[in-house]
Simulated assay, not measured.
Amino acid sequence: MANIKMKMSKQFFPNLSQNYIEILNDDEYYDITIEVGEDPNVKIFRSHMIILYYRSPFLRRTLASNKKNDNGVLSHVKLPNISPDIFQIILKYIYGGVISLNEQEPSKILKVLVAADQLLLQELIDYLQTYLIENKSEWMEQYFELIYQASFQSNSLLELQQYCTSFI
């Protein structure tokens, strides 16, 4: 009988993801508020500094310079460039590692991509660029100027930039 070592570990990511999404919806144990959008479309999200800190390099930098005061006042971050509906999608990704694009309009997916870029969520940036190119190329051709402008506002959107340059 051969000496075979069996790997005896099981990963339970779907349950873990679901639990973290439940934490996102918890109204009791949050320690930070995030104000997104601009008047009249502003919403304040309750969140958890530790999760944001480890999931977004942008928020890590923001939070490091915005530590919770000893007087018990919650940290508050403003992100006026991201709309509430887009930030809701981003938060679900940050907490649960889940994003559902099937029912989303391509223009909304592009907005999620731009927000992911602002928050430096590289894994999501890579996924969304590929998704748009592989699944929404007709829409991208129709709205080429919009795609072009969005892709060249950032150094992270290289796949979209390449798509645009090869299209010209």
Rank of each mutant, 00 (worst) to 15 (best):
L101P: 06
L101G: 05
N102C: 06
N102I: 10
E103W: 05
Q104E: 15
E105T: 04
E105S: 09
E105I: 06
P106I: 02
P106A: 08
P106S: 04
P106F: 04
S107A: 15
S107Y: 10
K108A: 14
I109W: 01
I109F: 04
I109K: 06
I109P: 05
L110E: 08
K111I: 02
K111P: 06
V112F: 02
V112I: 15
V112M: 09
V112N: 04
L113C: 07
V114L: 04
V114A: 09
V114T: 07
V114F: 00
A115S: 14
A115G: 12
A115W: 03
A115E: 04
A116P: 03
A116R: 04
A116F: 01
A116D: 02
D117V: 01
D117Y: 05
Q118H: 07
Q118A: 09
L119I: 00
L119Y: 03
L119C: 01
L119D: 00
L119T: 04
L120E: 11
L121N: 05
L121V: 02
E123M: 06
E123W: 00
L124A: 06
L124G: 00
I125H: 00
I125N: 11
I125E: 12
I125L: 06
D126V: 12
L128H: 07
L128R: 05
L128K: 06
L128W: 02
L128I: 13
Q129R: 06
Q129K: 04
T130R: 13
Y131K: 03
Y131I: 02
Y131W: 10
L132A: 06
L132R: 00
L132M: 14
I133S: 08
I133V: 15
E134M: 08
E134Y: 11
K136D: 03
K136I: 04
K136P: 01
K136G: 00
S137E: 15
S137W: 02
S137Y: 03
S137L: 04
S137P: 03
S137M: 08
S137C: 13
W139P: 05
W139D: 04
M140A: 09
M140P: 01
M140F: 08
M140K: 08
M140E: 07
E141H: 12
E141Y: 09
E141C: 11
E141L: 13
E141M: 13
Q142D: 13
Q142K: 15
Y143F: 15
Y143N: 15
F144K: 09
F144E: 08
F144M: 12
F144P: 08
F144N: 10
E145G: 11
E145I: 14
E145A: 14
E145M: 14
L146Q: 11
L146G: 06
I147Q: 02
Y148E: 11
Y148T: 08
Q149S: 13
Q149D: 13
Q149R: 11
Q149N: 13
A150P: 02
A150F: 01
A150G: 05
S151G: 10
S151N: 09
S151A: 15
S151T: 04
S151W: 01
S151I: 01
